[in-house]
Amino acid sequence: MNVFRLTGDLSHLAAIIILLLKIWKTRSCAGISGKSQILFALVFTTRYLDLLTSFISLYNTCMKIIYVGCAYATVYLIYAKFRATYDGNHDTFRIEFLVVPVGGLAFLVNHDFSPLEILWTFSIYLESVAILPQLFMISKTGEAETITTHYLFCLGVYRALYLFNWIWRFYFEGFFDMIAIVAGVVQTILYCDFFYLYVTKVNAVQRFQ
């Protein structure tokens, strides 16, 4: 555990909580892509199956349970509790175009051809593109509420910090995981355009377009 990894995890946690609280407090999920949230729930489910097979640390177990629990709670709020406010007409990204190729890639490029490892690889690849329905939705409507942009910013910062974590681990532990690093770079790049808009616009005007 290094400072980049810890702040990355906390940034990820902040993003998840910000989104959940926003929906809860406003009683609305307008502007939020339910499809991205389904993909994140799928990401956490397939990645954290090792909760059932191995214990790593109390921190690890707690964070995994919180991430999975919050992901399903968010999906529940969007598709059940506040379904009437869900902006389905603008959430039109075809997620099968992500899930199917990513599934194929996980079968072809992995560290070990075993069910758990393939599912872990699938989750890494899928996470790197899971935000696309949300970004697509924003580009379609041309706007996002400020709090939604804070959510996206924290989510992007999390993966960027993980990149620094991997650089740190490479130098000080000789550790590197090519699958995680390549997917992490892709994931971070997808947020770059958004980062630029966030810094130049969100803090200037309270409306993101």
């Binding site: 790593i56 640390s57 995994k64 991430y67 974590n165 590197f176 995981d177 995680a180």
Partner: peptide
């Protein structure tokens, strides 16, 4: 840091 060992990252 083996490739398919214990995954401590989230």
């Amino acid at each position: 840091g083996d490739e398919q060992g214990v995954k401590d990252e989230l």
